[in-house]
Simulated assay, not measured.
Amino acid sequence: MLFLYISGCTAPLMMFSSASSIAQMQAGFTPAAAALCVSAIAFANTVARFIAGSASDKFGRLPSLACAQILSFVGLGCLMAATQENQSFFVAGLILLGICYGSFVGIYPGFTVDQFGSKHNSVNYGIMAAGFSLGGVLGPVILTVTADGSNFSLAYISATSVGLVGAVCWLVCIRLLSKNKKEFNRRTAT
C-alpha cells in the first residue's frame, strides 16, 4: 500500500512545484497563463478528492485507485505531446495529474481504515502518509535529474516508470486482499 501511494503521488507532485516554469519553457505559456495552469491543477485536485472518495465507496478502493493511476499515465502522455503549437495537451495533462493526486489523497484514508481498522488509524495513516511525502521528494528529484532545458520527456518517462511500479503494487494488493478475504471467510465459516 505504501509503494502504491508513492507511485500515485510521484508524477503529480513532480509537476505541482514546477508547473508554471515548465508551462512557460515547454509549451510557451505567458507567466499569467502559466499561473492559470497551476490553478487548473489545484481545482482538479480539490474536485477529485470528493468524486474519488465517493467512487471508492461505491466501486471499491483498488478499482478507484487503478482508474486514478491510468489517468496519471494519460496525463503524462499528454504532457509529452504538448508543444507550443498544442498547449491544450499541456493543460489536459496537468488536470489529469491533479485528478490522480486528489484521488489518491481522497481514497487513502478510507483504504487505510478498511485494511487496518480504525483503532490505530492515526498511526496507520501516518505511515501511509509517508508514501505521499516520499512521492513529494521523488517527483521533484526525478524532474531535477532528468530535465534537459525545455525538454522534459525523460522526466515524464521516468514518472511513468514509477507509475508502472505502482501498477505492480496494485496487483500485489489485489492478490493479498483476496487471500486475506478467503482466509477470513474460511475462519468465520468454521
Rank of each mutant, 00 (worst) to 15 (best):
M80S: 08
L65G: 07
D57V: 06
G53A: 13
A130Q: 12
V74N: 04
A66L: 11
G102V: 08
Y108A: 09
P109G: 06
C67E: 01
S64L: 07
N124R: 09
N121P: 00
Y125R: 02
G102H: 07
E85R: 11
A68M: 11
I127N: 10
I95H: 10
F116H: 15
F104T: 10
C67K: 00
S103L: 09
A55N: 05
F116S: 13
F89R: 00
Q87A: 13
F111R: 07
Y101N: 15
G93S: 11
G117P: 05
Y108W: 07
F90D: 03
P63S: 06
G126Q: 04
A129Q: 12
N124M: 13
I99R: 04
A52G: 07
P63Q: 02
G93I: 14
T112N: 06
A82S: 04
Q69V: 06
I70P: 06
V113S: 12
A52S: 14
N86S: 03
G77N: 03
L79Q: 00
N86Q: 10
Y101A: 14
C78E: 06
G126P: 09
I95M: 12
G110V: 15
G106A: 04
A129D: 10
G117W: 05
G110I: 14
I70H: 06
L97C: 02
A82T: 01
V91L: 15
A92Y: 09
A130S: 14
L76G: 01
I99M: 14
C100H: 03
A68Y: 02
A92K: 08
S54W: 15
I70A: 14
L65I: 14
Q87L: 13
I127L: 15
F89M: 02
V105H: 13
G53W: 12
G53Q: 13
Y101Q: 13
M80L: 08
A52D: 11
S122C: 10
S103C: 07
F111I: 10
S54F: 13
L97V: 02
R61V: 04
T112G: 03
Q69C: 11
N124S: 09
S54E: 13
V113Q: 11
I127W: 15
F59D: 09
I127D: 13
D57F: 07
H120N: 13
F90N: 05
G93R: 02
L71V: 08
I99F: 12
C100N: 15
I99A: 13
A81S: 10
S103T: 06
A68D: 03
T83R: 00
A81G: 00
G77E: 03
F59N: 08
V113G: 03
G117C: 05
T83G: 08
L62T: 05
M80R: 03
L71A: 12
D57T: 08
Q115V: 05
L94A: 02
S64T: 15
S72C: 15
S103M: 09
